[in-house]
């Protein structure tokens, strides 16, 4: 498969959040602030890229019948590594993300890519797929968290630096209903763009 196509699939065409609606729990839970969303996205990208490479390397060794448990062990190992790295380097964010870091294990994007891509493709394509699927996820998380942070708190903070602020906030956007509303509206926006494109062609 062409590398360019894999990149485009990951970022846009098969975007895990907006196109496939996978991995919804972290998408809604940690996107209260841009920094949290970004760190979560990077952690998922790291786990996705590493697990894709290892699964791809072992794809001829792992017997078909036990492949799912084997994938889960591989993923859980990298999640533990990511957990320790985050705790060491960004302890504050690690605390805010809380149980959602170990929960990367059950994120359907990662198991989904291992099963549908990495177990069938060579190492390099799997690495590219992992990185760009992860980046697609990171982009979506960042988009949602920027909207929620700006509307919900009236400011935008990037790793402790205040980017801008204004005297207007709707608290609901950082609470649970805002998460569902933001993602629902964004999904409908992408649907709308698709429909418009479809009629023009």
């Amino acid at each position: 498969m062409k590398t360019g196509k894999i990149i485009w699939d990951g970022l846009a065409k098969q975007n895990p959040t907006f196109r496939m609606a996978l991995g919804l729990c972290p998408t809604l839970a940690v996107t209260t602030a841009l920094t949290n969303g970004l760190v979560m996205g990077i952690a998922v990208t790291f786990v996705l890229a590493c697990s894709n490479v290892l699964v791809s390397l072992l794809r001829k060794i792992i017997p078909d019948k036990v492949r799912i448990p084997a994938f889960i062990v591989i993923i859980a190992t990298f999640v533990t590594i990511a957990d320790m790295l985050l705790e060491g380097f960004v302890p504050d964010i690690h605390k805010t993300l809380g149980i959602f870091i170990p929960l990367i294990v059950v994120n359907c994007i990662i198991l989904g890519r291992a099963e549908s891509f990495a177990s069938k493709n060579p190492v390099f394509s799997s690495l590219v797929d992992g990185i760009f699927m992860g980046l697609g996820f990171t982009l979506s998380l960042s988009l949602i968290s920027v909207i929620r942070e700006v509307l919900g708190t009236g400011k935008l903070i990037f790793f402790g630096n205040l980017l801008f602020s204004f005297d207007f906030s709707v608290l609901g956007f950082v609470l649970a209903p805002g998460a569902f509303l933001t993602l629902g509206l964004l999904l409908s926006l992408f649907n709308y763009i698709d429909l418009k494109r479809g009629t023009r062609q």
Partner: peptide, 12 residues
């Protein structure tokens, strides 16, 4: 899906 999300928002 979008309308399901909006419904979930109201339920939340």
């Amino acid at each position: 899906l979008p309308i399901a999300f909006i419904t979930a928002a109201i339920m939340a």
